[in-house]
């Protein structure tokens, strides 16, 4: 192949890559632009702080839904992170055991279950018995969605830790569990943390599983045993309503959701960088 031809081929390949990147980014840019355009007019201070107004009355905001969403993802993380991390570490440490392959398979299946089905499951388990929608039930449903993601990322990252580190710890008289928790997990921590934040961001945008678990609440509530408002359900409710003002607020809510997910992603990046400063020179 002549040098000329090689250069041409390389230029074409580069061009194709650039086109692919643009195609992938275009929808994202478009969504952001559209959401901002539609929601900006309803975004004001009151939107963040005030409660929804009764039907027909203009104004009001999603203050309770913002707090509600934060509480829900907090509950979900509280439930999913310990379970997910411990399972992930177990899978990485005992990768070939029968039990591990069962857990791994279960995690993959759970990962593929549609979120509405998870919602129904949580409804049957956490709502029906007490006959009340609650933030707890919502957090449980979101947690179930988080677990498989946390499990698999933790497993992957713990596995990636070089075996020399484990050997170094064992050679100094550390037991296996001690080596795992003092050397291997800390070495994998930046990645595990990213996994957790990515999983959190993913469930923050879920609506379906909340519809019949945490339901909705027009009032200020932080009681986790009571129904609670959330941005996603609020956006859904407002979007299908016949009122223009609610439509605008739905767009603003959508904008806020995108922002929350963006902030979570940025926090993830920063946290990783900080931790990596310790891990890598």
């Amino acid at each position: 192949m002549s040098a000329r031809r090689r250069k041409t081929v390389s230029a074409i390949a580069e061009g194709l890559c650039a086109v692919a990147v643009i195609l992938a980014l275009l929808p994202l840019a478009f969504i952001l632009f559209y959401v901002v355009k539609q929601g900006a007019s309803a975004l004001n201070w009151a939107f963040f702080t005030s409660m929804p107004k009764p039907v027909g009355e203009p104004g009001g905001g999603m203050g309770n839904a913002i707090v509600g969403t934060l509480i829900l993802i907090g509950l979900a993380a509280l439930f999913a992170v310990p379970i997910g991390c411990i399972c992930g570490i177990h899978l990485a440490e005992y990768r070939d055991s029968r039990f591990s392959s069962v857990v791994r398979f279960a995690a993959d299946v759970l990962n593929g279950v549609p979120s509405i089905v998870i919602g129904i499951f949580a409804y049957g388990l956490a709502v029906l018995p007490v006959k009340r929608f609650s933030a707890m039930a919502g957090g449980f449903a979101l947690g179930l969605l988080m677990i498989p993601v946390v499990v698999r990322t933790t497993e992957e990252l713990v596995r990636l830790v070089p075996s020399g580190l484990r050997e170094g710890a064992l050679a100094l008289g550390a037991s296996r569990s001690r080596a795992v928790f003092t050397v291997i997990v800390p070495a994998a921590l930046p990645g595990i943390l990213t996994g957790i934040l990515v999983a959190t961001a993913r469930v923050a945008g879920e609506t379906a599983p909340l519809l019949f678990t945490s339901f909705n609440n027009r009032f200020w509530s932080t009681n986790i045993a009571q129904p609670i408002a959330s941005l996603t359900v609020q956006v859904f409710t407002y979007a299908i309503s016949p009122y223009d003002d609610w439509h605008r607020q739905a767009w603003a809510g959508a904008f806020l959701l995108v922002m929350i997910i963006l902030v979570l992603s940025i926090v993830a990046r920063l946290a990783v960088r900080r931790l990596e400063q310790m891990n890598r020179p």
């Binding site: 070089p162 580190l165 050679a171």
Partner: peptide
């Protein structure tokens, strides 16, 4: 392994501070 120390062919410092590396075995003990 506490009685039989080892220096590996490929050096394998922990991703921790210099101090914590040397103190690791002591803390384990």
């Amino acid at each position: 392994r506490r009685r039989v120390g080892m220096v590996f062919q490929k050096s394998n410092p922990f991703p921790k501070s210099i101090f914590d590396n040397v103190a690791y075995g002591l803390r384990i003990g």
